[in-house]
Every structure is written in C-alpha cells, then in structure tokens.
Computed example of a mutant assay.
Amino acid sequence: MALPLASRRLNIAGVADLVEFHRSSDGETAFPVEYKRGKAKLHRADEVQLCAQALCLEEMTGRAVPQGALFYAETKRRQVVPFDDALRALTEETIAALADVLRSAVTPPPTLRRERCRACSLIDLCRPDAVAKPARAWRTRMVDRLLSDDAVP
C-alpha cells in the first residue's frame, strides 16, 4: 500500500510504493520497497529514490532504516539495497541539486536519449520535444503543495 512520506530537514515529500515493518528485538524497522517496470539500471537513480524514502522514514519514525528493496517487474526479483554512507551522501547531494534546479525555475534540457524516455515515469511532465511553461508552473505548484505544512505529518 502506498504511504505518503516527507522530510522537513531535506524539504522533500513523496509517496512510497510499499513500506513493510519488520519486527526485531528492539521494535519495528521500516523497510521501503519500490516497484519498477523494467530491470536494474546501469546508474543509481532507483537506489537514490529508495534511499530518499528511507531518509524520510527515519525522520518520521525516529528509527534507523538500514535497507530497503527494489522490485523489478522484468526479472520478478527483489534487489536488497543497503543504505550505506556513500548512498546516503549521493542521495542528499541529488536532493540538493534538485532543489537548485527548482529554485532556478529553469527546466534543464533532457540528458537521456529519446528512446529511453518512453520508459520514464516523468515523460508527461518532461516532454523533451516541447517543454512548456504551463508544465513548469504545474510542477512548481505540485511541489509547493507537497512541501506545505499541511502535507507534512
């Protein structure tokens, strides 16, 4: 079941596909699971997304989230992802870079080859052939709404 997540410290909000709670001797530990259509990628974007969910869960629950999982539909397998210091640093750097892009209010040009764009969940927002101001305005309103005080628990 999808679970809304947020972090005031990182100024991010989103929705996890699934969060399992695993029992241990010292209580319950959150375990985020992200579902993907294809297969594992050569870059770490999926891991960064999952780690961002873990950082939100840590702030929301006050408990460490040491790992999560990516489930790829093409392979029908879960890939456990440990949230080590390097992945946490990469995730926070990525969040800071995205904040800079949002603050600039300038949509960066697409960096992926177009045939890869078809599998992207943001294709309807990005539209590399026709980036429009109304889409930027809508995206800004949606981010503002997600980060408003009303949306954060």
Rank of each mutant, 00 (worst) to 15 (best):
A105F: 13
Q79K: 09
A89H: 08
L10N: 08
S121W: 03
F31E: 11
A89K: 05
D84T: 10
P66A: 00
G62V: 08
C126Q: 14
F31S: 14
D46T: 11
L42E: 15
A137C: 08
R9D: 05
Q67A: 06
T91M: 04
R23E: 09
A137Y: 04
G38A: 03
E92G: 01
R145A: 11
D85Q: 00
D149V: 15
P4H: 05
T91F: 06
L90P: 00
V80Y: 11
S7Y: 01
A89G: 09
I123R: 14
L147Y: 04
C117E: 10
R63E: 03
L102V: 13
L125N: 07
F21A: 12
C51P: 08
A13Y: 01
E74Y: 01
D17F: 01
E58M: 02
P82A: 06
D150N: 15
T107W: 15
R136C: 07
R63K: 05
H43Q: 12
W138C: 11
M60V: 09
Q49K: 09
V65S: 04
H22W: 14
R44P: 12
L42M: 15
L42W: 15
T140E: 08
A137Q: 09
A40T: 08
V131I: 12
R63Q: 02
P108T: 04
L102C: 11
A16K: 05
T94V: 04
N11G: 10
K39G: 12
K41H: 10
T75Y: 04
T61G: 03
F71P: 00
P128D: 09
A54D: 02
L70C: 01
R78H: 14
T61Q: 02
R136V: 06
D85H: 00
V131A: 13
P66W: 07
E59K: 07
R113C: 07
R116D: 13
A13F: 01
A137I: 10
P32R: 02
